[in-house]
Design a protein around this nucleic acid. Structure first.
Lengths: 228, 228
DNA sequence: CCGAATCCTGGTAGATACTG
DNA sequence: CAGTATCTACCAGGATTCGG
């Protein structure tokens, strides 16, 4: 890529992740290792040659690593390195800004549960450490956990979840925009396992798309999420 | 600009500030209102037509406002709106990441005092609220202040500074990379006004280019700043 | 001198087809 | 499934010109 040629930390960061699609690739990988075609699905609109280019550039920058899954599933997956995971706070701030001040979303735009779920990542949660919840949205699975005080969100099914919650994408969006609270959400969802744990997870997600970066200041100025 | 067409807060943010040079324009304006030619100077390498385009796009997005300076200096300046200033935390995170993990700076790259000074912005400072310091680097002036606990950095001379510090760019870089401490820096600088206030400001800047986002964890892994 | 608009060239994005 | 190859259109980069 063309470099800025400026000895400024910000410019040097943009030299590596400033190109089109780069940060969105990182966004996808924040949920965990992904195969090439998974990335294509998660990045609607990206030309396949660009995805290949970006993955190579991100590998060269040490942000992404390509790894072969162990037998018997001998497929290649891409995952974030420690350097790549270090971008999480920056992405969270950009996401928070986009939430509050970004352009109004177009109804024709694509939307995926993973994108809105990521806004729940990093929120303070009452979920006890070590407790995990599997969240199933339509056919996709996500894993909710905590580092002790903050919510973590990863993709893929949980090995041994304390609770499994199944709900539709619509129900999830309404919960996270604050349009509905936990109680009606629970009525429209199916819970398997410990109901209290499920309730804690759902409470953490409630209203995650309002306010800024997980803090609940200045509710009401957020751009509403439109359903497709 | 070409939009991503994704109803994701991050993608919507990038729709507006994801283009080449956009965030660097915001970086320049974080120091205060700037004229068109000041921006050209602060963004070495940008073609003038691109700067004009970016400024128009940023105005359309409500991030930047164009204003006419009052008499007698009837010139146009560009400045950040509240929406634009809200990008500061995101830029700080990106800058911190670039500092720690970005590519090694090239010796041929341009460097400006303002870029490294911005890394001092947001650091915890012992400077009392209301106290301001004018920092003169070669021919440029900057204003250091605080919101009570965190350092603020703006461009231009301070109206009534409690202290004025003059030093060379080299001395500033050595101070901020942690290569020298406050004492030798003060010996190479000229201080006018209250020496204690000057010392507090210099202490805040010391080592700002090490560690992450103003926190001083994991010193020593930073990329060194090279002088031109 | 400030604040651009214009022209030209080369590279990159976007779309699609194709291959190991 | 995981990319590579090919083509077109547009955008970035550079220089020059033009109007306050």
């Amino acid at each position: 890529m063309k470099k800025y040629g400026q000895q400024c930390p910000l410019a040097r960061a943009l030299d590596v992740i400033g190109e089109r699609w780069s940060l969105l690739v990182v966004r996808e990988l924040l949920l965990g290792p992904r195969r090439y075609t998974d990335l294509l699905d998660g990045l609607p609109g990206i030309p396949t040659n660009l995805l290949a280019s970006r993955l190579k550039e991100l590998q060269a920058a040490g942000i992404v690593a390509r790894r072969m899954l162990p037998r018997p599933t001998a497929v290649a997956v891409y995952e974030l390195t420690e350097i790549g995971r270090a971008l999480r706070p920056a992405l969270a701030e950009l996401r928070a800004w986009g939430q509050r001040y970004g352009p109004e979303p177009d109804e024709a735009d694509a939307i995926q549960p993973a994108w809105v779920l990521l806004s729940g990542s990093g929120r303070p949660t009452g979920l006890p450490a070590g407790r995990t919840v599997e969240l199933r949205i339509d056919t996709e699975s996500f894993q909710l956990g905590t580092d002790g005080s903050l919510l973590t969100v990863t993709g893929g099914p949980a090995p041994v979840p304390d609770a499994t919650i199944t709900m539709s994408a619509e129900t999830l969006y309404r919960l996270m925009t604050g349009e509905t609270t936990s109680a009606p959400t629970l009525r429209q969802a199916t819970v398997d396992g410990d109901p209290d744990t499920a309730r804690l997870a759902i409470d953490t997600l409630h209203g995650a798309l309002t306010g800024t970066a997980g803090n609940d200041r200045d509710k009401g100025h957020h751009a509403p999420v439109r359903l497709t």
